[in-house]
Amino acid sequence: MRLKRKDILTIEDLAKDEIELILSTAQSFKEVSEREIKKVPTLRGRTIINLFYEASTRTRTSFEIAAKRMSADAINISASSSSVAKGETLKDTAKNLEAMNPDCIVLRHPSSGAPQVLAGFIKCSVINAGDGSHEHPSQALLDLLTVKEKLGRIDGLKIVIVGDISHSRVARSNIYGFTKLGAEVSVVAPPTMMPSGIASMGCNVKNRIEDAITDADVIMMLRIQLERHKVPLFPTVREYSRLFGLDRKKLGKAKKDIVILHPGPINRGVEIASDIADAPYSLILDQVKNGVAVRMALFYLLLGGSRE
């Protein structure tokens, strides 16, 4: 099994065996990050551009570390410092970057579909580092790796995703990722945050966290992104937290060995109670660690083959 694609744009596009290849490759890369010299020469001379149209310290840093551990040259371009602020179109930016002959562009963009648009303009690889409310494939891959590592399998697990499903690219990528590997996914949100037709993606739709949590193996709490809502989609943070936040009381209804994921950065006391975020069954820091490994795997699999 080899990965034979130029770009990683969505989990929806990936076949089950492609996802499994990425996960097993990432598993191998975890060891590299534990070496004293956390660097391998594999991608020497390759140039990776992190083109970020949205601020994201966590994801950008993770991609940057991954690139550097592979010995690639990583260049960060953020919207505020670039010609984007001067009104250059994505196509022009892409063409200008391409003229510098990079091997891969990692794109974070507030518009859904922007990575696909970019990939259509240029010859080098494109990795989607999160586009609008569409997908965030590397996040889903690291979530899959984290769960697989902790619970030994994905197939047959029950996954619950709670939060603003409407605006969440993490939710979309994870619904596709977990269902492709045989898990059963339920999404939980108030109706104001539940997008139309989401069940057709192959997940269960629930409005109450209590209804979903009882037989769940994994619960993933999404960050409430107040900055994304022009009009608040719930009355108050207090009420959201009371109805949809994960706390000890709600967790009391769950299986004892449930594990908790959160894509971060967390709003302590909003979608997740502080003591739960720090509890041993919280895998939040494992997710971060696996993020680097997954991104190394993506670079390796996309750039490790020949350019022809």
Partner: peptide, 21 residues
């Protein structure tokens, strides 16, 4: 595993499979 240190990375059609170190 010497895969990541190989001198033919990017020269073959497909990327070599990683093994355990």
């Amino acid at each position: 595993d010497a895969t990541l240190y190989r001198d033919d990375i990017g020269m073959k059609q497909e990327q070599p499979i990683l093994k355990e170190t």
